[in-house]
């Protein structure tokens, strides 16, 4: 097929040499145009993040000078530390990492793996029907259940704690159950059957046979669940109202108020940009070091950032 079409093209090129020259010129021009457009788009797309990081290094006069200062000079690297210490961001970082993102990520992975195993590797009646219910729950907007859940968790005394995020993560997440199930299905049945004949329990098969073969899928779950927890704003806004318990996403909001009231004084904008940069940095680094996992996770299941 390919070779046939190539030979047809060659014949045409032989017959019309002047047309071929024109074609390759327009092709080259087309490629230059593609690069020009892509570089323009790339610069536009990265500019806001560049502006965030570069403004973080400026002092007050540099921030509001007209024409705008594109490269900070002098660069004030101590802005990062100053901004960080302006509020108790150490505490907020501790809350974000150890009370929210890490436990939720770990528990979601474990519970979703167990459930996915039950949907993929054990044959039982009603399995496919329940799996469809599981998929259908992905369509349920969580704003619908937001208010009743708040009432339940409030009655349990969980306001200003991270239990409203940690406890539900023990019960699996439909997206990741789906993703892991699809992955488990690609692992040959013979492997689990062989382990069964050797007397392994189902838990043992999941742990010793399936888990070592599922590292790519597990990486996707870990990355995305961490990302969602780190970026979550509405959840903490509802459940956390003491400043000491706030995660980073909420703590930074206090700096916004400062920036809007102080304007071009008191280092309001450079500090706001410095803290924004520091909160965005772990996610950007995570992407750079695990780019393949991110891209695979998105292109196979359409997971949102």
């Amino acid at each position: 097929m390919t070779s046939a079409s190539q030979s047809v093209r060659t014949q045409r090129e032989v017959r019309h040499p002047e047309k071929t020259a024109f074609l390759s010129l327009s092709k080259a021009l087309g490629r230059v145009a593609v690069y020009v457009v892509l570089i323009f788009l790339g610069v536009t797309w990265i500019f806001p993040l560049y502006w965030m990081a570069s403004s973080a290094l400026k002092d007050d006069p540099q921030v509001y000078t007209v024409p705008p200062v594109l490269i900070p000079n002098p660069a004030h690297w101590n802005n990062f530390a100053d901004a960080w210490n302006r509020f108790d961001f150490n505490r907020a970082a501790f809350n974000s990492v150890f009370l929210y993102s890490l436990p939720v990520t770990l528990f979601t992975l474990i519970s979703s793996m167990i459930v996915a195993y039950g949907f993929a590797k054990i044959r039982w009646r009603g399995r496919d029907a329940l799996f469809w219910v599981c998929i259908a729950t992905m369509m349920l907007p969580w704003q619908v259940t937001m208010v009743p859940l708040f009432i339940i968790f409030k009655n349990l005394g969980w306001i200003n704690t991270y239990w409203p995020f940690v406890v539900p993560s023990l019960f699996g997440n439909a997206y990741f159950i789906f993703l892991l199930r699809q992955f488990f299905l690609t692992i040959p049945e013979e492997l689990s059957d062989a382990a069964r004949i050797d007397g392994a329990s189902e838990m043992g098969i999941l742990w010793r046979v399936i888990l070592p073969l599922s590292k790519p899928a597990i990486a996707v779950v870990l990355l995305f669940r961490f990302l969602w927890a780190w970026n979550d704003y509405l959840g903490p806004l509802i459940y956390i109202n003491s400043e000491a318990m706030q995660p980073l996403a909420l703590a930074i909001y206090r700096m916004r108020t400062l920036a809007l009231s102080m304007g071009n004084t008191a280092m309001a904008y450079p500090h706001l940009m410095a803290v924004s940069t520091l909160i965005a940095l772990p996610i950007i680094l995570m992407f750079i070091f695990a780019q393949r996992t991110f891209i695979e996770g998105i292109s196979t299941t359409g997971l949102k950032g």
Partner: peptide
């Protein structure tokens, strides 16, 4: 993927 709070600030 950058936190929406950060991009909102920028």
């Amino acid at each position: 993927i950058v936190p929406a709070v950060c991009t909102a600030m920028v």
